[in-house]
Simulated assay, not measured.
Amino acid sequence: MPAAAGRPVARAAVPADAEGIIALRSELILPEPLDAEWAALCSARLARRLAPGGDARAYVAEVPDGSLVSCALGLIHPLFPAPAYPEGLAARVHAVATRPEFRRRGLAREVLSALLDRLQADGATLFELHASEEATPLYRELGFAADPALMRMTRLGGPGRRIEEPTGRVQFPQDSYASSVPKSTGSAFVLFTDEYNRPVQLRATYSQVHPWQLPGGTMDHGERPWQTAQRECREETGLRVQGPPRLLASVFGLPGAAWPFSTTGCVFDGGRLTDEQIRSIVLDPDEHDAVRVLPLEEWKPLMPPQDFARLDAVMTARRTGTAAYFDSWGWGDS
Rank of each mutant, 00 (worst) to 15 (best):
F80I: 01
P78Q: 04
G54L: 05
L30V: 08
L112C: 10
L112V: 02
D35R: 11
S26Y: 09
M151G: 14
E62M: 03
V96P: 00
L119D: 00
R57S: 09
V63A: 05
D35Q: 08
S132D: 10
Q120A: 14
R140P: 00
A58G: 10
L150A: 11
S26F: 10
D117P: 00
L119A: 12
A36I: 09
G54Q: 03
L75R: 12
G74S: 06
R109G: 11
S132T: 15
L50A: 08
R104A: 10
G88I: 10
R109Y: 04
R99G: 02
I22F: 08
I76M: 09
A146G: 03
G53W: 07
P31V: 04
P78I: 00
G123Q: 06
L24S: 11
D35T: 11
V96A: 08
F127T: 07
A90K: 04
S132N: 08
L73S: 05
L116V: 12
A82M: 07
L89T: 04
P78V: 03
P81I: 01
S26E: 13
M151S: 10
T98I: 11
R104K: 12
D117I: 00
R140L: 04
E134I: 12
F144W: 15
A124C: 15
P33H: 14
E62I: 01
E128M: 09
